[in-house]
């Protein structure tokens, strides 16, 4: 990654929102992610299977939510410039058929490391007023 395309450390302020995006999950999105990732757990495409394990219906892959959140950070950080990304999965996202489950991804500067010149980016994924990820944090090297 060339330096001119990554965020400038000195321009960052703790608390500042660096990226925000609305993401709509549909059954189509889930099938596409299943194929791309190789995660074919039927609770992500089959309502009967999902209900049989106590879910309200088909839910999005946690890793799809995490992947979509990472994409929002990576678009700001520069491709390949997210050094570390972690999250807990706290709430499932039921995906209706037909229709869409729409989430809002917000990425903020959580902390700055002067010595390493890295930013900790805290990510919130909001679904109907509820946070579906916990402690979602990315480490982004800066110029």
């Amino acid at each position: 990654m060339s330096d001119e395309n990554i965020p400038s450390f000195d321009a960052l302020e703790v608390g500042a929102v660096v990226a925000e995006r609305e993401v709509a999950f549909t059954r189509d999105t889930l099938v596409r992610y299943a194929g791309a990732s190789g995660d074919f757990n039927p609770i992500h495409y089959n309502d009967v299977m999902a209900e049989s394990v106590g879910l309200p219906g088909v839910i999005a892959h946690g890793m799809l939510t995490m992947g979509a959140a990472a994409s929002v950070v990576e678009e700001w950080a520069g491709p390949g410039n997210v050094a570390d990304f972690q999250t807990r999965f706290t709430r499932p996202i039921p995906v209706p058929n037909p229709g869409a489950a729409t989430v809002v991804v917000t990425a903020k500067v959580g902390a700055l490391d002067e010595e390493l010149r890295t930013a900790r980016i805290d990510v919130v994924v909001d679904f109907d007023g509820v946070k579906v990820l916990g402690k979602a944090q990315a480490i982004v090297p800066c110029a």
Partner: peptide, 16 residues
């Protein structure tokens, strides 16, 4: 596979 995965998670950079 990189292109397919980038589409699936809405990673928009052309570098993918």
């Amino acid at each position: 596979k990189i292109r397919e995965f980038a589409d699936a998670v809405d990673a928009r950079s052309f570098a993918h």
